[in-house]
Write a protein that binds this DNA or RNA. Structure first.
Lengths: 344, 344
DNA sequence: GTTAGCACTCATCACTTGCGAGTGCTAATA
DNA sequence: TATTAGCACTCGCAAGTGATGAGTGCTAAC
């Protein structure tokens, strides 16, 4: 068990290192007024903390830096909550000042502001479209052999796909098909769309529309392509300004991995509420071993919609980021709910 | 006027520097078989070329590197055309193998492949939506006070906007409105949409729909928000692998500028066909002074649709990039035309 | 239990030095 | 006359050196 003094020293060490990015020495610590001990005392405690694995040295005679275990302990036990400053609050409010009507725009702007406030990179995972239900379905022919299929969801999201029309399909055929599909598909989750399309509507449509199976080849294929969650970035370049990434090697691999959306989504823990912190190698991505990722999620009404993540160096300002993420996820949820459920 | 030998030496110098990124010395050049001269002779010519401003030295006793003027001359007079290798052709074909039906997907994949083939960053400017015409207009109510407006263009592009419904607007009202707007707006360029909406349809709608002006406040505002050209990136991180950007300072400002889509669009010369090359400070962006940008454009049918750009260091492989861009812009035009005009 | 004192460690920085690739100039050569 | 060989000179770069200072661990005194 750690003594109170050791707890204090660990906390102050982490705090100091987060601020300066320099190894923390005993003399330096003893100068702070919240640490009323001599350097020698601090050295002893630091040696103990090192033995326990909370601190490490960069070389034999350097100051200490927190280990991953140290950060983990700090985050779990030493992180005192903090209120957002009114300055921050003001910035956050500014997102919602102009009554933007696009969810995507709101999300994009949130990403930007978050990265500005934190000086780290933010990633927002857009709503999982699969969880939305079909509200309306329609087909608009463009020429005599191509058309665009449009699905509007109850959340106001619009999916559209181009597809080829088989030769000789008549306009009444299409109209009939749209009517049937609207009846059959309304209320169906986009996740289930393909299944329903294949199993339940096929026989019905076959009965009414000639050349139906031919149509399905291109139409079904178009609709079956996955409804992916969009990824929004804020301040991709922000990370490069922190000294831990002045090593080109690291900077490169980080920028590279961020260009691969499929890799990035592994950073998000699937669908849990609250704020989660992954430190260094707790992230599964090898390229992220020097990074910490803090995630939260936002909701619309009661339903979980998407996730927010902040990526920074392991030496990141956990307290500030947690505070901001907490405020932001709440505000974003409220705003999106307002837009979609519409209260004036 | 440059002698033939000077032309040769300039060409070989640029070629060599493009490949190695190292200053080129006279001894080194004389070893190549295409240069049957002694180092001393080469030195004399190089000195002349330096006087004329085509070459420069990094320090008094270093080899020469091309100046911007040197690159310009090289690009204008010494760039021998080249056929794309079958290997490259194969890769390019692979984009169009799977019959993708989304223009955006094709463009995105093109961006990716281009950056893979060139090892530079590619930027594709999406179609200028303003140049498309309205094909169909519709409104889908989501709740009793919000709805989504949808515009389908003749190119199969779909624009959608959420907006608030004024209280007490009836379903028949909406239907009437959609009918009128469809009649009035079909065929109108998206560029002109707001103007038409304000001037020509207002009186007509006012006559038929109560509370119309109220509706316009939120509906018009939603539709008037600009239809921006989308920007697609390929291989943002690719640039960082080239030695000229191992300087953190430069790498940072480059990545930063690429995050600002509005800055990026200034790189494109408006709407000219053919391939254009901007070298170093010929680019208006200060951050790009060490970069060259090569642009081309793609068309659908006869109409110019969007632009392609490759961004690399000034020391970029101009010949290869020009060749690839030439092939790619042609193929992309053909493919997009196929998708939209539909030939089987 | 805490602290002062001391010998020791190691990164960092300024400075020197030798090396080598490259140059310009001059005189010899074809 | 155009080309080439030879030579002295320049300068970036890498390796080596030594001084500096921040930091440590340990021991003995408080």
């Amino acid at each position: 068990m750690l003594t109170n003094r050791q707890l204090l020293i660990l906390q102050v060490t982490v705090d100091d290192f987060i601020q300066t990015a320099q190894p923390v020495g005993s003399r330096q610590l003893s100068k702070k007024e919240e640490v009323p001990f001599s350097p020698a005392t601090i050295r002893n405690d630091m040696a103990d903390l090192e033995d326990l694995g909370y601190l490490e040295k960069t070389h034999t005679s350097s100051g200490r830096i927190p280990s991953e275990k140290g950060y983990r302990f700090y985050v779990d036990h030493l992180l005192t909550p903090q209120l957002a400053t009114s300055d921050d609050m003001q910035q956050i409010q500014s997102i919602f000042q102009e009554r933007i009507t696009e969810t995507e725009q709101v999300i994009q702007k949130t990403a930007m502001i978050l990265s500005e406030l934190t000086t780290y990179t933010s990633i927002l995972l857009g709503p999982d479209v699969g969880k939305h239900r079909v509200k309306r379905f329609s087909i608009v022919p463009l020429s005599n052999d191509s058309a665009v299929a449009i699905i509007i969801t109850d959340s106001g999201h619009v999916e559209n796909r181009l597809f080829q029309l088989p030769e000789g399909l008549t306009a009444p055929d299409i109209e009939k098909m749209v009517n049937i599909l609207n009846e059959q598909l309304t209320g169906v989750y986009l996740h289930d769309l393909q299944r329903v399309l294949e199993k339940e509507t096929t026989t019905l449509l076959n009965r009414h529309i000639g050349r139906y199976s031919e149509l399905m080849t291109s139409f079904g294929a178009a609709l079956s392509s996955p409804h992916e969650e969009k990824v929004f970035y804020g301040g991709k370049s922000k990370l490069l300004h922190h000294p831990e990434f002045s090593d080109m090697q690291k900077a490169r691999s980080l920028i590279t991995i961020m260009d691969q959306a499929n890799q990035i989504s592994t950073l998000f823990s699937p669908n849990q509420s609250g704020i989660h912190i992954r430190i260094g190698s707790e992230n599964t991505l090898l390229e992220m071993e020097d990074c910490s990722v803090i995630t939260a999620s936002y909701t619309i009404g009661e339903e979980q919609m998407g996730s927010i993540a902040i990526i920074g160096p392991t030496r990141m300002d956990y307290r500030r980021v947690v505070t901001l993420l907490d405020v932001m996820s709440g505000d974003l949820s409220r705003e999106l709910t307002r837009i979609l459920r519409g209260s004036r």
